[in-house]
Amino acid sequence: MDTTTTEPLADLGRFSDPGLLILASLAGGPKHGYAMMEDIEQMAGVRLGPGTLYGALARLEKRGLIRALAAEDRRRPYQLTGAGAAALTEQLTSLEAFATTGLHRLGAALWNG
């Protein structure tokens, strides 16, 4: 049964930002919890707490955006699904458009001022 939902990442509520960070981390390949925390800290300078990480993981897994792989010595890696990659692309594209517009306006303001 396909458990994938079309709910956007914003539906994760307080966990939407951690969710986005996790998806971005998993875009580089499957990782287990601790590896994700390290990767996210290195990539974004954000240190996710264990409770927040697993709160977001549970939500992403329920929505079919990530999937758990077989555990390796107690550590279970997670992998991005097709739906997860699509959601991440959508979010990053939206952020990119937002950043481009913001930088463009900032540049124009500096040029004019």
Binding site: H32, G33, P50, R74
Partner: peptide, 17 residues
């Protein structure tokens, strides 16, 4: 039910930290 699903890996994460 949460412990059954995530307990082992959560403990592993805390130990790794």
């Amino acid at each position: 039910v949460w412990r059954d699903r995530y307990g082992e890996e959560f403990l592993a994460l805390l130990a790794d930290r």
